[in-house]
């Protein structure tokens, strides 16, 4: 066997195994979507059914039992709202830390990340009591605030590392031309790190969208997000897999599609700007 054909075989094997992994990883999602179009009986059939006559019945039933749009709206408002709030707080801070670092900047950043180590379950009680006292239980406001704080440390890290990559000389040149701090931020820093800011925002939206602990424990009917909606279907009564699949598909579809479209940006965000 020649060198060339050996190389070709190796290449084909690599591609084949890549596809096998891709199919394995995607199969559960595919199966969930497929099941959502089955009847309850088809959903639990042995052997599993691949070909069947699809029905929209589950989606209709889910919509009848609970208003999907209101949960979806809560998810959108809380995840986007929290992300915007966190960005507003984080951008000036990260800018200041990146360009005017002090002796403790590194320690402060590590401390910020360590606040994420506080297990939610450890502070649920006080937060619950405070939210109750402020009349904010089951409100979108409380989720926006909590999600914003939850994501603030990660956003700070991301922005800091992006801002760090902007050469100082550009800022100095701007200052020579008479830029004040605000101009500098608006006309130099923000445009140059726009990709980084969007990716930090995207990651924060994904994390807030999928957050389950706080939304399940602090909300009920009014501010319930899609995670809470899904959890409400998890009760053990009977086998409602098709309906459960339908509600899960509905809950995950927006963020998956969002993720597909933004994966390039997202990757930048996830790596703390480590990948240049």
């Amino acid at each position: 066997m020649g060198y060339r054909s050996a190389k070709l075989i190796k290449h084909n094997l690599t591609v084949l195994s890549a596809w096998i992994f891709a199919l394995l990883f995607f199969f559960p999602i595919f199966w969930m979507v497929l099941t959502s179009f089955k009847t309850e009986l088809q959903a639990i059939s042995v052997p599993p059914l691949f070909i069947f006559e699809p029905t929209l019945e589950n989606f209709t039933l889910v919509q009848e039992r609970s208003d999907y749009m209101s949960y979806a709206l809560n998810s959108i408002i809380t995840s986007f709202g929290a992300t915007i709030l966190a960005l507003i707080i984080a951008i000036p801070s990260a800018y200041s830390m990146a360009f005017f670092p002090g002796r403790f900047t590194k320690d402060i950043l590590l401390w910020m990340l360590s606040t994420k180590m506080l297990p939610a379950v450890g502070v649920l009680m006080p937060i619950y009591i405070m939210a109750d006292a402020a009349g904010l239980l089951d409100s979108r406001t409380v989720l926006v605030i909590i999600f914003a704080f939850m994501n603030l440390p990660i956003i700070m890290w991301l922005l800091f590392s992006y801002f760090k990559e902007i050469p100082k000389e550009i800022l100095e040149a701007g200052r020579m031309d008479g830029c004040n701090t605000w101009d500098e931020l608006k006309h130099i820093v923000l445009p140059l790190s726009w990709g980084g800011i969007t990716s930090a925002g995207l990651l924060s939206i994904v994390l807030a969208w999928n957050e389950a602990f706080w939304s399940i424990n602090l909300t009920a009917a009014d501010a319930g997000t899609l995670t809470a909606l899904v959890a409400s279907y998890s009760s053990p009564e009977g086998l409602f897999w098709a309906k459960l699949s339908a509600v899960s598909t509905l809950a995950c579809a927006p963020i998956i599609v969002f993720g597909w479209f933004t994966q390039k940006q997202l990757v930048q965000g996830l790596t703390f700007g480590a990948v240049k």
Binding site: F26, I29, C252
Partner: peptide, 12 residues
């Protein structure tokens, strides 16, 4: 296909 599971909610 490979990265999609990351976007799935933990409860789902």
């Amino acid at each position: 296909m490979l990265i999609s599971p990351f976007f799935i909610m933990p409860t789902v």
